[in-house]
Amino acid sequence: MIDPIAVFILLLGAATPILFAALGELVTERAGVLNLGVEGMMIGGALAGFAAAHATGSPALGFAAAAIAGVVLSMIFAALTQFLLSNQVATGLALTLFGLGLTAMFGKPYEGVKAPTMMAGPLGLNPMIWLGLLMVPAVWWGLNRSRPGLILRAVGENHDAAHALGYPVRAVRIAAIAFGGAMAGMGGAYISIATVLQWTEGMTAGAGWIALAIVVFAQWNPWGVLAGAWLFGGVTVLQLRLQAAGVAVPVQLLTMAPYLATIIVLVLISARQKYGRSGGGSAPGSLGKPFHALR
């Protein structure tokens, strides 16, 4: 009834938007910034990407536009939190609401329009799936093996010490926020351009929140993000298959399953953290704290 290979291929597709968004947020958080606006940046990318792909007929340009839209939205967040020192949690929430509202308004003309078809990449998979998979080792290597990654982690770990050593805390953080925006935008565009192939208001359906949860679940490790995205994608695909197969479980319960699975894993990991040997966990030391250099 269910072919494992077919399910795995579908899983890769379902995991990709979250993988992009979560990798971006991971980098942002490793720099010490908590941006809860992932959902808003994703939906912004979904619409901008869809509109650009529709206008040019090129999905590639669509993804580029989505990345730019994500960066633009993230820069609103950066300006408010890094220069005006606003509260990161409140600003992130506002960015999500802003993104959802803005796209609902500007998305009207695109409702019912069909997206241009994308060319398949190697092994018949969407090229963005490959890009997402490549980003996992790239982000890991960049954070753990490169000099800019070391500086980024230093800024996220202890911004006062990084400042005392002469590193530009604010500039590093803005760059990390921009990377997070670009990744979230592309993740959102994958939903509109490559999965659903049309624009619907609020179509990201909480994927941004799942991405945020996965970053914690992954303990700020890119490989953990991959595992989390696959878990969520896997349960999503499985429940769709079960629905199609007409299993006697209410549809609402099945639709709930991926979110439920994410929450359960999150709770299990937190519990292990609390009672296990690791204790403090691996959250960046300055996560969510505003930085203000006294001169």
Partner: peptide, 14 residues
Amino acid sequence: SLFDALTVAENIAL
């Protein structure tokens, strides 16, 4: 001036 989560070598490199 030190970063707790980083290793000795990383701290020195910074």
